[in-house]
Design a protein around this nucleic acid. Structure first.
Lengths: 230, 230
DNA sequence: GTCTATAACGAGATAGAC
DNA sequence: GTCTATCTCGTTATAGAC
């Protein structure tokens, strides 16, 4: 058993794994995550369903793989856009990442729905999804951190007493070098960005916002200002 | 055929219709909208599937009824909260409506997912869903309008040239008496509010925001300021 | 007229024997 | 890994009860 044979085996395994996920993604688009079925994937690939279990031990594991791939694909797009804007100001970097998120969502609406839409009934995501899911958020934290260190970050109004304990816990967990009020604003802006993208993708802007690109650019610029960037 | 007999028939029809929708909502929670099945609803009610067609001409019409009911239930809650805060300032009225939206979502997560989550594969909502879907947005417009007429609304920074045409179209369609920049900010805040609620309901705040009530209150207060309320 | 029940269609999923 | 028998589904046609 030569090493090239082993390499070939490993390569074949990766190719089949990729084919399974590709087909599963097609079903995701056609039928939704709730109806994702290992049997249907197998049938479409000319395999027998039991053969799939050599690659994914269960339907939920296949779902998890699709979710992680989606988060990673989004994260990669966002990181690439951020890298392209590395020399620009913090607001430009912020909007570059936000626009990359929107563009990815428009290109992959069903995968967007998988990760930011309704939970799949009966499925709970394992902790392995957390790091890929964090990539976009970490970019925003980095942008704000750079502005803070370069003193390009304005101070935010003081927090109410009821929010202070949670704000300090959040800051300690997510970005100990940033002011708690900034971390709270960041978490809010992060959620609000996906509110904008989700409303566009899921049809809520129908007949409300039609020319969405300038609208979105404007909204995310104001989000950047809301966390103290200028 | 007396009028009381007609009343009894009509009443019975309404009761069966309500029972069908109740059971359908139960299945919505258990299996998700994609797997809503007329046959399962009928079976659970001790009816035969064909009998359901006297009440809903198709599965999609049942789904539409559930969607409209959800929008109306949310709209009623929001309107009641707004009425309770009628004498308060604009920011208080704004946050009262926003907190009613969040509270309704926490009480009805599956119906929230139905109307603000992933689209149901193969289903497209008819135009009859538009008026109920508009109720919450109309409340926010009304609050801002009142503040504008009472001169309690601050002016927003001027819009970029690329956004101005769409902003004017939006203002003409949604609130011709408000400045276009305000209407744009309103549409953004509206989407962003549901980003906050969706992130909480769909699990994105897991291990990020834990004490969500004060966090949400703070975020929506800042949203109110973002549209010019003070 | 208003409703429910029976039966069937074509399509698809599923479980288990082989 | 294959085949088959048995489920599910949405939907319609039809017949009969009230």
């Amino acid at each position: 058993m030569s090493s090239t044979a082993q390499g070939a085996r490993a390569r074949a395994r990766m190719e089949v794994t990729a084919a399974i996920k590709d087909e599963a993604r097609r079903q995701l688009a056609a039928e939704g995550a709730a109806k994702l079925s290992l049997r249907a994937v197998a049938r479409e690939l000319g395999m027998v369903s039991s053969a799939l279990y050599r690659y994914f031990p269960s339907r939920d594991d296949l779902l998890t793989a699709l979710i992680i791939d989606a988060y990673d694909s989004l994260g990669e797009s966002a990181e690439a856009a951020h890298a392209d804007a590395a020399d620009a100001g913090p607001v430009q970097r912020w909007t570059a990442v936000a626009e990359a998120v929107r563009a990815w969502g428009l290109r992959h609406p069903h995968e967007y729905a998988l990760i930011y839409g309704s939970p799949v009934p009966g499925y709970t995501a394992p902790d392995t999804t957390v790091p890929p899911a964090s990539r976009v958020g970490l970019l925003f934290i980095g942008i704000v951190r750079d502005a803070h260190q370069g003193s390009g970050l304005s101070e935010l109004p003081p927090l109410s007493g009821e929010l202070r304990p949670e704000a300090e816990r959040m800051a300690a967990d997510l970005a100990p070098d940033l002011p708690p009020a900034t971390v709270v604003a960041l978490a809010g802006a992060w959620a609000q960005l996906f509110g904008l993208v989700g409303f566009e993708l899921f049809g809520q802007f129908h007949r409300v916002v039609e020319d969405r690109e300038p609208f979105f650019r404007h909204a995310v610029t104001r989000l950047a200002q809301g966390v103290g960037l200028e």
